[in-house]
Amino acid sequence: MERRTVLITGAAGRWGRRLARQLAKFPIVRVIGLDITPPERPIDGVEYIQADLRNPLLVELLRTEKVEGILHMVFTSGLSGGRGLLSPEDAFQTNVMGTMEVLAAANAADVKQVVIKSTTMVYGAHVDNPLYLHENAPLRGTDGKPLLRHRYEIERFIADFRRNHAMNIAVLRFPGIVGASGASSTMRYLGQPTPPTLLGFDPLMQIVHEADVIGSLLHALVAEANGVFNVAADGVMPLSQMIRRVGRQPLPIFHPLAYAAGRFGFVRHNRLANQIMPFELDYLRFPWVADTTAMRGELNYEPRHTAEEALDAFRSSLRLKSYSDLLPKRKAYDGIQAFLNRRRQEDEA
């Protein structure tokens, strides 16, 4: 049987790495990983290409390798990762221009399916938001942090691109991502000893389990989905409840003070302040909950974890954070145990 080729851009990054690991398990799929930095721990069965995304040879690569699907996971915050600090301009080049070029190249090389990860933050948090935002709701998250601006630009470009090109593009919008890994802005916010909230405001919030992020992205690739879909876990809950559920207590701040502080440039661009409050304050004040009927309907994806399960998994990982040195041993023990059990079963059979 002929193997089908899938290209993962940003394959060394957080999401690219996990997607590659999952995809490499299927013998029918050939996985090519593209990233500007080499992977820390290469995954078996994945061919890595170290190259810049904005590259005239990208079309050639897609054509010669007969790539059928692209998981476009490049999105840099400009701050983290192995490639050091990027200037805002470079980050824009990578995020927005990079996406444009990937789409153009994919179209030229007759790629069937492109999957892109986005965020429900693009809807913006506004006082007059309906409680459940459908995919066709106006994107009003423009005055946020620069990274949100990038997402917005990408979404606008894709909407335009769709009008003139027949290629399948699936854009999945995710709310805050929570799970056991602890590596997302939402988790860094929730995992603080006392996450700051706004006094007298407690909007309904929505999250998604990281396993469902991976699961839905792969599902969109395999099911050849076309369109924009909100993907979120079942179960909305007030922000304060979310914080309490991970074993923390909220620290309410008088909102005019918080907004006033945010107006100062040295607070806005302060690294510590951004760690404490990774969102625009409006996102802790007004609802931005997305409707997931299309996820169940057209996309036909059923999330595997509820919001409660995601938060509980995160809480457990927080509790074990200081024992991280012991965890590999624990994992190895479980591995041996599983191996022995399997052997025993085989012997019996």
Binding site: L131, L204, V236, M237, P238, S240, Q241, M242, I243, R244, R245, V246, G247
Partner: peptide, 13 residues
């Protein structure tokens, strides 16, 4: 239970 966040609100809060 409320201190632990162990309660439920419905879809509209």
């Amino acid at each position: 239970r409320r201190w632990r966040g162990d309660y439920a609100v419905d879809e509209f809060g």
